[in-house]
Design a protein around this nucleic acid. Sequence first.
DNA 1: TATGAATGAGTGTTCATTCAT
DNA 2: AATGAATGAACACTCATTCAT
Lengths: 193, 193, 193, 193
Amino acid sequence: MKELDDKKSRLLSAAKEVLAEKGLEKATISDIVKRAGMAQGTFYLYFSSKNALIPAIANDLLQTMLHKIKKEQVLSDDIWSFFHKMITVTFQVTNSYKEVLSLCYSGLAIDNTLSEWDRIYNPYYSWLAEIIAKGIEQKAIRQDVDPLVAARMVIGLIESSAEQIYLFNKLDKPLPEHQQDLFTFIHHALEHR
Amino acid sequence: MKELDDKKSRLLSAAKEVLAEKGLEKATISDIVKRAGMAQGTFYLYFSSKNALIPAIANDLLQTMLHKIKKEQVLSDDIWSFFHKMITVTFQVTNSYKEVLSLCYSGLAIDNTLSEWDRIYNPYYSWLAEIIAKGIEQKAIRQDVDPLVAARMVIGLIESSAEQIYLFNKLDKPLPEHQQDLFTFIHHALEHR
Amino acid sequence: MKELDDKKSRLLSAAKEVLAEKGLEKATISDIVKRAGMAQGTFYLYFSSKNALIPAIANDLLQTMLHKIKKEQVLSDDIWSFFHKMITVTFQVTNSYKEVLSLCYSGLAIDNTLSEWDRIYNPYYSWLAEIIAKGIEQKAIRQDVDPLVAARMVIGLIESSAEQIYLFNKLDKPLPEHQQDLFTFIHHALEHR
Amino acid sequence: MKELDDKKSRLLSAAKEVLAEKGLEKATISDIVKRAGMAQGTFYLYFSSKNALIPAIANDLLQTMLHKIKKEQVLSDDIWSFFHKMITVTFQVTNSYKEVLSLCYSGLAIDNTLSEWDRIYNPYYSWLAEIIAKGIEQKAIRQDVDPLVAARMVIGLIESSAEQIYLFNKLDKPLPEHQQDLFTFIHHALEHR
DNA sequence: TATGAATGAGTGTTCATTCAT
DNA sequence: AATGAATGAACACTCATTCAT
């Protein structure tokens, strides 16, 4: 059991590296198993196909992010400092994973595995929606905000900002200032007045 | 000259259809030229490679959107009603092009043609930044807003919302309400107080 | 010992089923052991390779046929009624095994295991040759007939007729009439005058 | 048009050679195109798959045989000398093509392309049936013979005899004597008395 | 004996691209 | 400019077989 998981996660790691280096089209299964130190066939014991890697990596990525954000959540006194941390962490993870991130988007188009993405992102949305709901209760957040819709907007906004910076190198002012702009945007958008 | 352009746009149309139906990987040049009613070799008179299609399609898509938004801009009395129109149009275009849109993201990962995307999106960002700058001058928008950063955030936010709805079918309330939520979010985020 | 034989015959049965359903190329060892309820490796304790299945199945098939025909032989009064029974039984067995039969032919081409086939068919030929020889002695059959050559011709003729009917569905008159035509053909061909 | 046919028949010839030497499983498309002096992809312009070769070869083989037999038919004075020639030609062709012949049988089992075989053999059966029908009219052949059934039996008998000799090397007397035995068998089986 | 995870050689097939016409 | 036959490199995937347990 442990060994199985070990093999699978070794493959996943190798895949992330190779895909980051070569891109989805140019990366071959041969490359991946070579890096993982296994035989070709072994790959297919753990993944049904090359394309099956993408959702697996995306899931791994989001889990990492969620884990880090939840850790920060505990330490946050109020909801606004939590949003601040959320921005910081999202930017960090986006930066670390930037090579793989675009692959995840591209995975979309390979097969239309939209339902997979749903399954992966849904817990993130729901969890943030709850936090926002609490913020509404505590009169920190506008009363007319729909928690789930807001959750999706906030996540979409932070991620698209991070991508513009790290994928497209659109950083034309110091990072802290940029993050501050983003926080202010969200703060004003949601705060109770 | 005209005929050339005609062939090129026929190829582009055919490509959009085929790509929407089959996805980037499964769509073949053969499919595309067959639908366009031409020979294999003709494709290469107008596009340097298969991958060169993606930026071409993306450009086409953004031009369509920009054209429509600019038309609305003229008719808008104030900046807020303009944002409202911008949301509506972006949603419309996203819906029309939803099959092709994810391809554009995927194009990212094929080659790292990020610079292409830059070239395509930059005019859109700059143009909106100017509008926001005017809004700041007119005291409609917060004085501490950075126009270019805000422009990117607004565009990213609207597009990610539209994608969540049309690509992932995340529409759990009537569309007008959803658009209203989005507008309110942006309005609060930017308005001068 | 009994268990071994049990396992081996369970594998053989499973193989016959799977091969009949999928054909030689598409049937996998994995399919076969799964149906037999064993592990991959177990197969190789009883058969040296995948191709070794074919002669084993062919042998099984011919043994079945021989067994049935010999039972009828005992009950036959004269050689002609024996031929009649032989036709009936060959048709029956061909029908029962039709899915596997073509595999046996195909086995031929995989490796050139012609000698295997020899070993399997020879007893059948020799046995029928003896019966024909007796028929000659008894002046029932032409005196100038070569028993072994005739045996092969009769077996080849009956089998090819049965195959045309059951493999190729070439049955354009009632089965009894068809069998009667075949019997008459053989009867005239061999009878003493 | 001519060139196309040329390429296809060059591929067919190369395929016959390679398949005869290596057997169906071991022969690779690469072997075949190399021998034909073309590129891999060219093969697929003329044959949809590797397996599509088998019916093509079988057809070629039967056409050759039919052509030769029909030529002899014209020269034959009576039906019995025609049968004699038919035996000789079938034996010759079986001998020339013996390596490929078993492949044709094996083709059966690969896919269940029985209908293909039907299409290929039917003209042969029909044509012989007509000749037998004439023989019946001319009182050379038994009046109670069903021409089509007899045609199939005769062809099946001659072919199975030839195969036993050339594929299984079951030649235990001089060839002319063997052919004479076969002819006598058929003669007695069909002759009018 | 029995297992089944691991292996890795082996090949059919695809398709973007070219180029002679 | 337009064609479309020909190319051939490139790769995902399969599956018979092995062997440590």
